[in-house]
Design a protein around this nucleic acid. Sequence first.
RNA 1: GGCGCCGUACCCAAGUGGUUAAGGGAGCAGUCUGCAAAACUGCGAUUCGGCGGUUCGAACCCGCCCGGCGCCUCCA
Length: 497
Amino acid sequence: MLSIYNTLTGKKEPFHSLQPKTVRMYVCGVTVYDYCHIGHARSALVFDVIRRYLEFSGYQVEFVKNFTDVDDKIIKRAHERGVSCDTITAEFIEAYYQDMGKLGVRRATNEPKATEHMAEIIALVGTLIQKGLAYPVAGDVYFQVEKYQDYGRLSKRKLEDLQAGARVDVDERKRHPMDFALWKGSKPGEPSWESPWGPGRPGWHIECSAMAMRHLGETFDIHGGGMDLIFPHHENEIAQSCGATGKEFARYWVHNGFVQINQEKMSKSLGNFFTIREIFEKSEWPEDIAGEMLRYFLLATQYRGPLNFSDHAINEAKQTLNGFYDLFKRLEEKTESATADRDLPGVMKRCREAFCEAMDDDFNTPVALAELQRMKSDVNKLLSLGLSTEARKISRKEFRSLGNILGLFQFDKWEFVDKPRPGDVVVGLTGVESRIMVGQVSPEIELSKEQIEQQIAERLDAKKKKNFSKADEIRQFLASRGIVIEDKPDGTSRWKR
RNA sequence: GGCGCCGUACCCAAGUGGUUAAGGGAGCAGUCUGCAAAACUGCGAUUCGGCGGUUCGAACCCGCCCGGCGCCUCCA
């Protein structure tokens, strides 16, 4: 039984979808005026995994994630560059898809844009005015917070408390300082749409209400986003939506924690952020491997907690993944023995159950990963006792299947060793220590598979002749090229990059 | 000023009233190996920021204190 922590109630609750076997979920996407940073990546990934797990659990998931494509920051950016807002938003929507694609984030079933929902937005604002919850002032329209009884129920704040610490500018035209804009009359040079209140554009919060209701209905199951959206964005969405319909809006509110840098929130305003593309560019690893490292790192902490970003943490993720892919590599090898085959189903069953139990507990991905690690360890033991070729295939498939829920373990190829690049220096150390690249000049050209196998054959020959110094020399040579040799019990060797 | 979060071993990180406080990374020791690597085995917090309290029993509940952070303005 799945339970989810609901911000609205402040506790974990059993999850029941409104309609059986279907989950309708809305997640606040990004405002497309700049590249995404790791914080955006975490949010996108968390909800991607939630979606995947719901699907795995047998639900059909209607997953709506919006793009905010009308906004002050977009207008500002367009002016700076001397281009249209459309140019800016198109560019960054494309960048979003590229970056999230590298992370393996699937596209939502529906990805609406604010600019394509003006009719719905205007209608919703009209309804709110009609119901006496909103009032027009000189081309703007404001939502009147005092008219909505439950204002503050999501963020657990009272209007009086909000006022006391309010840093908002006092606007004489507002009836209450916390009243917020549903519609903003446009200034010259700004994108605008015709409305009963004159030309203008929507306020930030109204678009999500309008799009969520348009695509998911007035009441739906899950609404998600980053912690920082709880107030005012989601609080306002609730006020608008419930105010207009008189019905519950979203039933479960899910919020992910922040990515931090040195224990501080990473954000645009603080300037301490890393963009997703920057991380991929700087990474020594091929794109798909860097993506999996990042993904593992982001899922190794429960989604509600803070997550500190560091090179060290990313490298730890890589180390752990190496252990998995090392096993997967061995699972591809052919074998005669089948001594431990009969124990495999039990190991897999236990893992699957424990994995689901963890995910059912508010998507506890760190525990789910721990269970996969336990299965890794168990399968390694079985492997040393003897698993048939068929059993190996089956267990690889199980890792692939459970891993897919987290978006992991889908590769057939993996790279284990930092590759010496042209110009890097390498010292002739023993074995794996040669990863430390200091000393000699590394090769301009990477070794081909044939060259590697040629070297291994020579080494095998040397070993047979008990010429161990030559064998070690060959191993060191390969190591300096980023190739690690592992001798198997039968005398042959496997290698990995 | 208001609301809220966090502090678990060298590092990351689960656990939130009751068996020996998951798991990973790093380290050390051992098995295997010509030597390695990988894998496996063992070691590693008598203790969960501190001090009190509630309880038969607390890392988990309550109070106070210390340290760090977030929201209340745009922000995933």
